[in-house]
Design a protein around this nucleic acid. Structure first.
Length: 170
DNA sequence: TAACATTCCGCGC
DNA sequence: GCGCGGAATGTTA
């Protein structure tokens, strides 16, 4: 099930499975659906309720506010390792950041920082699963699959500064 | 096996 | 201090 959300930052695209929100894409950057599970039908009323929650949470997040109640997230597309990484990311508080290496250490796998980066790139639900709050070790931006400009914009809207500089000016 | 959204160390400027 | 090159690293398709 595919729906869109209009925001002041453009039109986001969402996909729902029977288990919940399965994918969220940036405007102008629509990705193909991940796997067949993401296309499975959910009931009409479930999707409607989830979509309202997703739209509200997304708009809050873009405004730099707490997202509030999230719909159930269907992360069954990911591998075990990826779900672990995404789980840690969801626990990063608003306005805070972690490095790829710190997440690897949190999973008791120091040295897996590169793998953590790969898992971030595979995140099907950016913004709501805050992959943009993950930076390189030297407090530099690192990368972002949706484009670095999005990462800068999201960090700036949360009031995060890097080495005393606003991400938008980097 | 090759590719990564990394990190660390050693160099030269 | 900053930038660059190279090596080690875990996970994935």
């Amino acid at each position: 099930m595919k729906l869109t959300i209009a925001t002041d930052a453009g039109k986001f695209t969402t996909h729902y499975s029977q288990r919940g929100l399965a994918q969220l894409d940036f405007p102008e950057d629509e990705r193909p659906c991940y796997g067949e599970k993401a296309n499975a039908e959910a009931t009409r009323s479930d999707v409607k309720r989830w979509h309202e929650l997703t739209a509200a949470a997304l708009k809050n997040a873009l405004a730099g506010k707490e997202p509030g109640t999230l719909p159930p997230l269907d992360l069954s597309i990911g591998t075990d390792f990826q779900r672990e990484v995404w789980g840690v990311m969801q626990r990063i508080a608003m306005g805070r950041t972690m490095s790829y290496g710190e997440i690897a250490a949190a999973l008791r796998k120091p040295g897996a920082s590169r793998a953590v980066g790969a898992a971030c790139g595979a995140n099907p639900i950016p913004v709501l699963v805050p992959c943009h709050r993950v930076l390189a070790a030297n407090s530099k931006l690192g990368g972002f699959s949706g484009g670095l400009n999005w990462k800068r914009k999201l960090l700036a809207r949360e009031g995060i500064y890097l080495n005393g500089i606003q991400p938008t000016l980097l």
